[in-house]
């Protein structure tokens, strides 16, 4: 009984604690804008990434990019390049860097940095319009970034 309890607790901790191999936003190394290694230490889940890309409160990639492979997301924006074939144009490491902080690749990019927590002008607590009372989390977690990258690398033409 006790042994089972401790085993279960240990298993739960493994799930809920930040994974030791996860790279924090401030610790990410960019090489010419690219991030070579997975932020979580393992590959992401493309299906989960697709969800992040079309959910307004998460990645909301379709707000600005046209994504022909996700026709069910309506009113796709057109202020940024279409993403179809993006895996033919960029490597996985480059895509990871673009999603995490596109300004490391394109200095003046309009694209928000999805894995950055410092260096903002008047940051707010999410969409409340109010000053944050805690440390600012990145817009997407390391896992969500990897999930999006996993979907993007399927986008060959």
């Amino acid at each position: 009984m006790t042994r089972q309890f401790w085993l279960a607790t240990a298993a739960m901790l493994c799930i809920t604690s930040p994974v030791a191999s996860e790279t924090a936003p401030s610790a990410v190394t960019y090489v010419d804008g690219a991030i070579d290694v997975s932020l979580t230490g393992s590959p992401g889940d493309a299906a989960a990434g697709k969800k992040v890309m079309t959910t307004a409160s998460l990645g909301n990639c379709v707000a600005c990019h046209q994504i022909g492979t996700i026709p069910e997301a309506d009113f796709q924006g057109d202020i940024a390049p279409p993403l179809d074939g993006v895996a033919d144009r960029y490597s996985e490491a480059e895509l990871r860097g673009l999603v995490a902080n596109a300004k490391m690749t394109f200095e003046d990019s309009f694209m928000p940095a999805f894995y950055k927590t410092e260096g903002f002008t008047r940051p707010g607590a999410a969409y409340s319009g109010k000053a944050p009372t805690e440390d600012l989390p990145p817009i997407l977690t390391a896992q969500q970034i990897e999930d999006v990258v996993a979907y993007l690398i399927t986008m060959t033409e």
Binding site: A56, I79, P112
Partner: peptide, 22 residues
Amino acid sequence: RFGQLEMSCANCHEDNQGRYIR
């Protein structure tokens, strides 16, 4: 360029006028 999204008025209303965000 304000906020965590780092957007200025000009980013939308000058650089991207006429285009769509969703």
